[in-house]
């Protein structure tokens, strides 16, 4: 994924309007782009081309359904580990090998590896965390969400 900002003139006003509008969601219909295009004063084909280009240049990471694993009876859990710097790359490989690891970030803290486990069943979180502990010999701290105060940030492009 692109981590560098795009050059300043990469996005025009229409691109920005598309980015802002399409964070809000598309209707579940036969021609979903046609409806969104109308509110942007674009043709359906122009909107689809814009989205494809935005994806190509890395302004968006994906387009599609945002699934909530918990609503499906699954579970997400944020976990953290204190990984000795000398072992960091080895542990990255071990942790990332688990399909349950959806995101993994290196962070500036004694707890320097933070990852999200996404499992289909609640007991999958515990099993995945235990497996990581066995394979790495390191402790996994689990920070399950107890209460969600806010989710649904929109970036103003």
């Amino acid at each position: 994924m692109r981590r560098a900002p795009l050059p300043p003139d990469t996005l025009d006003a229409t691109d920005r309007a598309v980015l802002n509008r399409l964070q809000e969601g598309l209707p579940i219909t036969h021609r979903p782009f046609a409806e969104a295009a109308e509110s942007l004063s674009l043709s359906e084909a122009e909107l689809i081309d814009r989205i494809a280009r935005l994806r190509e240049i890395g302004a968006i990471t994906r387009f599609g359904p945002f699934y909530d694993a918990e609503a499906m009876g699954g579970a997400f859990c944020l976990c953290a580990m204190e990984v000795p710097p000398a072992r960091f790359e080895e542990v990255v490989t071990l942790v990332n090998a688990l399909p349950e690891v959806a995101h993994n970030y290196e962070r500036t803290h004694r707890l320097n590896m933070w990852f999200v486990l996404a499992c289909e069943k609640p007991d999958g979180v515990t099993r995945a965390a235990q497996r990581i502990e066995r394979e790495t010999g390191l402790k996994v701290l689990c920070f399950p969400k107890e209460k969600e105060f806010f989710i649904g940030f929109r970036v103003t492009a």
């Binding site: 994924m1 969601g25 968006i60 994906r62 699934y67």
Partner: peptide, 16 residues
């Protein structure tokens, strides 16, 4: 609620 919405995921980094 299984699907929160059908939308684009902006790349925060690319947007500055």
């Amino acid at each position: 609620g299984v699907i929160r919405r059908i939308a684009v995921a902006p790349n925060h980094y690319a947007l500055g």
